[in-house]
Design a protein around this nucleic acid. Sequence first.
DNA 1: GTAATAGTGTCTGTGAGACATTATGGC
DNA 2: GCCATAATGTCTCACAGACACTATTAC
Lengths: 264, 264
Amino acid sequence: MTIEIDGETEEEFLAAYEPRKYPPMAVNAEVALFTLRDQELFLLLIERRGHPHRGRYALPSWFMQPHESIEATARRALAEETSLALDPRHLEQLKTYSTPGRDPRDCKVRVTSVAHLAFMPDPGEPEPGTHARSAAFVPVDDLAGVTEGGTIELAFDHATIISDALERLAAKLEYTTVAAAFLPEQFTLAELRGIYESVWGTSLDPGNFTRKVTGVDGFVASVPARRKTGGRSAQLFTHGGAQWMLPPMLRPASTGSRRAATKR
Amino acid sequence: MTIEIDGETEEEFLAAYEPRKYPPMAVNAEVALFTLRDQELFLLLIERRGHPHRGRYALPSWFMQPHESIEATARRALAEETSLALDPRHLEQLKTYSTPGRDPRDCKVRVTSVAHLAFMPDPGEPEPGTHARSAAFVPVDDLAGVTEGGTIELAFDHATIISDALERLAAKLEYTTVAAAFLPEQFTLAELRGIYESVWGTSLDPGNFTRKVTGVDGFVASVPARRKTGGRSAQLFTHGGAQWMLPPMLRPASTGSRRAATKR
DNA sequence: GTAATAGTGTCTGTGAGACATTATGGC
DNA sequence: GCCATAATGTCTCACAGACACTATTAC
């Protein structure tokens, strides 16, 4: 910090202000964008075109620009890494990762990453952007370090980030209505139940699920239309606008196949 | 990014790597450290000695150093800003704040702040560190922009950060056992209940509270000692080691005096 | 027809909330 | 004796979980 001069105004201070000469720092936005495809949870990954970790699969990421908030950077990461206006229905900050050395570039620039959690209805296959050799939605169950038996190795500490994102996602389904953001405008309760079942790795009783979801004020609102399914035709619903589910719908004691989270 | 040269190894890449010449960036750790004093929630604030926002009350904060994780920075912020080894019993990352312009220094260095939530038993009055004119625990109810009718104006966007911290704290009491981190090694259930009542701004039924807390496996463990109180002497307990409270203890529909949070 | 699913109904156990009761210590 | 609080007990209601049962559609 500069030496304080009594009586100096804030304007004078800022005009004279010289930031300390540290090794350069950079702030990164990384996005874990999930979607559901055939009742299975998929995650958007890119194959890195350049170093470090060239050729490995990684979360889309971008460096924060000087006049941009980190959330704007996260949205741009999706756009730039996939040459596709992937506009997630839900995007929230997850956590900031700053362990020294987690990015090999730390020897030249210290890279701090602000990870984000996002999800949306399946937009189909994305096109790779400038930094990516390829871009694709990959089953979460295939990721090494995330799911027991997964084989796809991930760059940086992205396996940790994805595990944290999955735990946050599973927890948010309990006490919020964000599950609807995985689905198109209109959906059946069986489709909504599929979100819960895929994320939690359990099966839920259809009857009890319907009773719970329709009983929470504003979670779902029925529309005057039905959809043919394998069995009886199903009532269609929209998201009713409520953000919170009270009381929460707690996930059953875990029997899922994914690596046990540190939580519960 | 550098232009990719096929066949280049990661070592060669890193040796030649030149970070882009952006305006300088800095990453900040800020800490909202709460404690309970006379059944009232207090927050550690410093009075800023230098610009910007000189003389205003602010959260203790420190710039991240090149070889330090952000959590280490947060702990150092407490040590440096208060000349006191304030070792919080609980410290966790809250959220990263990055809106351009939230710090006036953004015109020279872009400052991104990683806010933290911490709490501990009342350590008494702290001494101010080098950047602080004074340091003190201040009642949360006196803070403008946090509590309706509060008068203490806060620097930067710290009122927002503190509100977010309070909401996180209130939520964590519901489904974790962290409330014990506000208390010394041994405590009575009335003291533990006091944490919940102060944070939630409600009163709780003592009988039901005891039944719930002692019923959660590993929340509290009784020690063979009692403490004299105003009435009958009370059994002493320790934290039993459990991290999670399942099922959660939901806070009653809010009647608290604090400004309505955006949540629930 | 059969199989599969939507949607409703019923029973039961758990647990939260409200409240009463008793025990124990300070004054 | 009187008051405050600890600690336990009781009753009721809400709700989750288990498991019917029926209606409707695809094949």
